[in-house]
Design a protein around this nucleic acid. Structure first.
Length: 259
DNA sequence: ATGGCTATATGTTATAGA
């Protein structure tokens, strides 16, 4: 079961690049972030024509997450629990049943800049809520995959120029500590578990020739519960997508699970 | 670099992103 996460930075703007990648990579599941669309505006046909079931949790203008799946999506829930007043569309869950049932969580964690400030406070509070949800999911003892744009650079080796990020919400100590607290509940960060070396990124800014200079950061992650980690066959970053036509500023990250 | 680019809606400018 090939499961991917991809921050597409606008579904309408990626109407060509996303299907092109799907046709080459042929993932079973894709967790999308930043669809920047309401549910009614999501071009479902593009994906249903390719055999994907589609579930969206959209919002006008920005944010928004979605799931594409070649297997039926069951028990779909929208929104991160813990704050009924939170109207930002950043979390969606569903279950797929292959050889075993897998719980999928697609997430778009708040950016948090400028820090300090109310946006940073929202980011850290959101991460506390996510920690609660992550702990509850562990108690199910299901294979769980929490994948998305975490907007966290976990360690210095996850940035080409870590010194440029020291005061940024993506790299500040509180953000990294909150990320570690979630991982340390018992999750495996799939890419880092298989690739200890530096120099692997999932985002390159549109500005200042960041892609051409390989000035990237690794902020798109896939966290696996112990039951999911036991099924891990492979994990990769599809870096070449960043060099394609009209690309997102993020690239896909995927795992292959024996499920 | 005090965001140099991109996307969307609020739309010929503002907001957000990272």
């Amino acid at each position: 079961m090939k499961i991917a996460t991809f921050n597409i930075n606008g579904i309408k703007a990626r109407a060509e690049a996303l299907p092109a990648w799907l046709d080459v990579a042929v993932p079973d599941i894709v967790l999308l972030q930043e669809i920047k669309s309401v549910d009614e505006g999501f071009p479902r046909d593009l994906f249903e024509d390719r055999g994907y079931a589609v579930e969206t949790h959209g919002q006008k203008g920005f944010n928004g997450v979605a799931i594409l799946s070649k297997l039926p999506l069951e028990d779909v829930t929208r929104g991160l629990p813990g704050d009924d007043s939170d109207e930002q569309a950043r979390w969606i869950e569903a279950t797929v049943v292959g050889t075993t049932a897998v719980r999928l969580c697609g997430l778009y964690l708040p950016n948090g800049n400028p820090a300090p400030g109310p946006k940073y406070d929202y980011k850290l509070a959101w991460m506390t809520r996510m920690q609660d949800r992550a702990a509850a999911l562990l108690n199910t003892e299901m294979p769980v995959v929490m994948a998305g744009d975490y907007n966290v650079i976990p360690q210095a080796e996850d940035a080409a120029k870590p010194e440029a990020w020291v005061d940024d919400a993506l790299y500040r100590p509180e953000s990294r500590a909150a990320f570690r607290r979630i991982v340390n509940l018992g999750y495996t960060e799939a890419f880092r578990a298989r690739e200890p070396r530096p120099g692997h990124y999932s985002f390159w800014d549109y500005q200042a020739g960041a892609w051409q200079r390989n000035n990237g950061i690794r902020i798109d992650h896939m966290l696996l519960s112990p039951q999911a980690a036991d099924l891990l066959r492979d994990v990769q970053i599809d870096k070449d997508v960043r060099g394609g036509d009209k690309p997102s500023d993020h690239v896909p990250v995927w795992v292959d699970l024996d499920a």
